[in-house]
Design a protein around this nucleic acid. Structure first.
Length: 486
RNA sequence: GGCGGGGUAGCCAAGUGGUAAGGCAGGGGACUGCAAAUCCUCUAUCACGGGUUCGAUUCCCGUCCCCGCCUCCA
């Protein structure tokens, strides 16, 4: 059993067979840098980050490209409203986007092409379409002649005869056909523009992805991803332009992520319910946030809701607790080697693999992790009464959980626990001293003093728990607020 | 109106032609000086009505309801 993906174009789940054996190419539509990224962008980022991580785990050499749209109407408008330049708006928000990506623990993409850096490639593609008479110039604009493509609409399953057309750049009456869309837009006063065979202007949105995916990954690359809301017109038009210009298939698989909702409402600036990615990471922590992102199938809608983030935090703590508990046994979790899976871990790894291979069923995969945690805790119980074999099993299972959670799901579980070590290096002696005093008090059955010390430590953010083999401590998570917060 | 996706326990959410994972919350028990953590345990006629079938939550038809896209959007 190997990876299967649901392909939006074929409308069914199909085997993943890459263009080049052993390699996987991934193009994901990135942001238009008009504003700071919000948690909706984060969902798409995380979904495809997990896909990329799973492909890598599965042995593929992955090339991950995510573009940046750094020139468009909204960026220009934003610049006009704030009295700055489109380039400054784009640069500032691109920086915010990359900062948010780091906070989310996204693996850096291999190529981050920008529209303004690919004017030549876009103009070249447009020229070839004009030569083929599949595009035409009108008042400095260039439009794609939709009806010249027999299979236009195959991705979004739209019939050209049912389409109304839009006035994206010039009035419908000025077009040969109202449904033709702009590939090159003639310059308007005060707007950024570049020279072209058709006069100064700037590229249309859809042409950039067609040109850049083609340039960086080549015809027939493997996976094209993006939000479900991009299916039409964006992706439909990408396919149209690319396949018309190149006479070659564009992408082998189309993967789309579902939209994010804010309670009953759609996340929308006008409602004022936009949550920034960096804010969300600071509030909830990377692990809980990503666990929440993965709490629904990637094609299903997902709702941003405080209660659900609290649940995700609790679920994440359950994973972290196992790691901490295992370490109190005097052993460290043993990282999982995918090429040499220990027998105790094998059934879980197999189930995890089946789940992920099944169109990236991360929700089921997470449940496998939870099952493994339960089994590991059973081993911990036995280990605490001196069963060395059980101790080893617990360490192996905990390591498996950490490796899968971090390498594949990107939760940052190991890092969350390492933070305790970092603090321990500086203040550990102090904490240990207090715990020693508390232990002495408990031995004297002076529970009032023992509880006072525990309360004191708790006030400082140090949680003390008594285990059969002694007391342990760890930091309460600052990124796990109470339910009523926010 | 067109296209598409859904309705599974208090909540979130997988999944299967042979009575349904996991998490969170809650009840009970074990453990603990008390906690915490952990383990065990309890809680679902799978929207409604038909049909196919030995048997459907899972397939088909219909009904009701929800959501997304059809204009910019991850």
């Amino acid at each position: 059993m190997a990876l299967q993906l649901y392909d939006s174009l074929r409308r069914e789940q199909v085997d993943f067979e890459p263009r080049d054996p052993g390699k996987a190419s991934l193009y994901v539509c990135g942001p238009t840098v008009q504003d700071k990224p919000h948690v909706g962008h984060g969902r798409a980022s995380v979904v495809f980050d997990v896909l990329r991580r799973w492909l890598t785990w599965s042995g593929y050499e992955v090339t991950h490209v995510t573009n940046v749209t750094d020139v468009d109407d909204k960026i220009i408008l934003k610049a006009q409203l704030t009295g700055t330049t489109p380039a400054m708006v784009a640069t500032e928000n691109l920086r915010a986007f990359n900062q948010a990506s780091d906070a989310l623990g996204l693996l850096p993409v291999h190529v981050q092409p920008m529209a303004t850096g690919h004017l030549f490639e876009m103009q070249d593609m447009i020229s070839r379409l004009i030569d083929k008479e599949m595009a035409y110039e009108r008042d400095g604009n260039v439009l794609f002649r939709v009806r010249t493509l027999e299979d236009y609409g195959k991705l979004s399953r739209r019939d050209v005869d049912d389409m109304r057309g839009s006035e994206d750049i010039i009035g419908a009456e000025s077009k040969d056909d109202p449904i033709d869309f702009a590939m090159w837009k003639a310059a308007k006063p005060g707007e950024p523009s570049w020279p072209s065979p058709w006069g100064d202007g700037r590229p249309g949105w859809h042409i950039e992805c067609a040109a850049m995916a083609g340039k960086h990954l080549g015809p027939g690359f493997d996976i094209h991803g993006g939000g479900l809301d991009l299916v039409f017109p964006h992706h439909e038009n990408e396919i149209a332009q690319f396949e018309a210009a190149e006479d070659a298939p564009f992408a082998r698989y189309w993967v789309h992520n579902g939209m994010l909702r804010m309670g009953e409402d759609k996340m929308s600036k006008s409602i004022g319910n936009v949550i920034g990615i960096v804010d969300a990471v600071e509030t909830w922590g990377r692990g809980p946030l990503r666990l929440w992102y993965l709490s629904a199938h990637h094609r299903s809608p997902l709702t941003y809701d405080t209660d659900r983030l609290v649940e995700a935090s609790a679920a994440f703590d359950r994973l972290a607790t196992l790691v901490r508990t295992v370490r109190t046994l005097g052993v460290d979790p043993v990282p999982l080697d995918r090429d040499d899976v220990p027998a105790v871990a094998a059934p879980h790894v197999d189930r995890f693999t089946v789940a992920m291979d099944d169109d990236l069923n991360a929700t089921a995969a997470v449940s496998v992790l939870h099952d493994a945690v339960t089994v590991a805790h059973e081993h911990v119980r036995a280990a605490e009464t001196g069963d060395d074999e059980a101790r080893t099993a617990a360490a192996v299972l905990a390591g498996m959980v950490v490796t899968l959670a971090d390498d594949v799901l990107g939760l940052g579980l190991g890092a969350a626990v390492e933070r305790d070590d970092a603090v321990g290096d500086r203040f550990g002696a102090l904490v240990e001293h207090l715990i020693g005093e508390r232990t002495a008090a408990r031995d004297d059955r002076d529970f009032a003093r023992a509880d006072a010390i525990r309360d004191q430590l708790a006030a400082a953010g140090v949680v003390v728990e008594d285990r059969p083999n002694g007391s342990r401590w760890y930091l309460s998570d600052p990124a796990a607020p109470v339910a009523e917060d926010t």
